[in-house]
Write a protein that binds this DNA or RNA. Sequence first.
DNA 1: CTCCTTGCAAAGCCTTTGCATTTAC
DNA 2: GTAAATGCAAAGGCTTTGCAAGGAG
Lengths: 163, 163
Amino acid sequence: MKKTSAETIAKVECLFKSYMKEEKLRCTQKRLSVLREIYRSNTHLDADELFVRLREQGVGISRATVYHTLDLLFRYNLVTKIDLGHKHTHYEKSWGVADHLHIICLKCGKVSEATSEDLAGMMEKLCTGHGYSLGSFSLQLFGECLDKEACAQRVKEAHKEKA
Amino acid sequence: MKKTSAETIAKVECLFKSYMKEEKLRCTQKRLSVLREIYRSNTHLDADELFVRLREQGVGISRATVYHTLDLLFRYNLVTKIDLGHKHTHYEKSWGVADHLHIICLKCGKVSEATSEDLAGMMEKLCTGHGYSLGSFSLQLFGECLDKEACAQRVKEAHKEKA
DNA sequence: CTCCTTGCAAAGCCTTTGCATTTAC
DNA sequence: GTAAATGCAAAGGCTTTGCAAGGAG
């Protein structure tokens, strides 16, 4: 997924601050550091990866706070939750990337990213048509690699790793 | 979601049998009963609901087998996994319903179903464009009810239930 | 008759929670 | 100063797994 510009990150932070103010919640350094790390990253992360990255950067934060914050960011549509067919939830930035989806191979587990311009508009329409306003969406396509050879190769390698 | 006709269920069973044969796996009664129950149902179920329903029908089955079977059915694109923002995964039939999605209110948790005719074709194109064949897809829209009053009412009721 | 499937119970593991402490405003 | 946020550790709860018994092909 595309890199997020510094200006965009600033905008998202600003947005987050205003949300917090509205709801009489607090804009703490830890919350901001989670938000920033997600927007600096160009891929999907799980809660633990996020926790580790932040600790490596010297941010003193606990898993509990990471989970709390992710939930908060999700409720305000600043991050998306994704189920990539692994055992746990992944998260990624969502503001300014409303055209983003994942394609997952059910055989080898390969994940590709795709974008579609028409998507956002379509989702918007569906939402309003059913009496909702759209915050974010989560779209995963499950299928199989067309390149059977490379796919089988990846399956083999995954087996090796396990042994 | 729409009711599945008896003929369609028969088709799906047949499909499942052929998959099992191809892969030298076994088409057991327990697996069939899970498949049937999902296709008979017109809504999303979680693993435990499925387990309870089957037991009520006198099917002697264990949770372990339910989980195993769901995973199997998912890999062969006969069921879809959905994250409705609750704590655990939901499953629903997917064969013959490739135009189905959920809209979830982040405030009150209300879930609506929607269908879109263009969706399947669009997903198909995206998949092949990225070197995959499409099996199934999972699409959730997260937003907020436009009817703020009814939404607030549901939030209130949910609080009551907890207490 | 062989190998796959099932079930039980236990383990695993991500995620949540209670409560005391710290901190934003 | 007050209500919210944080962290720790422990609990929670869905899901997976090991292994022995059962069943499909």
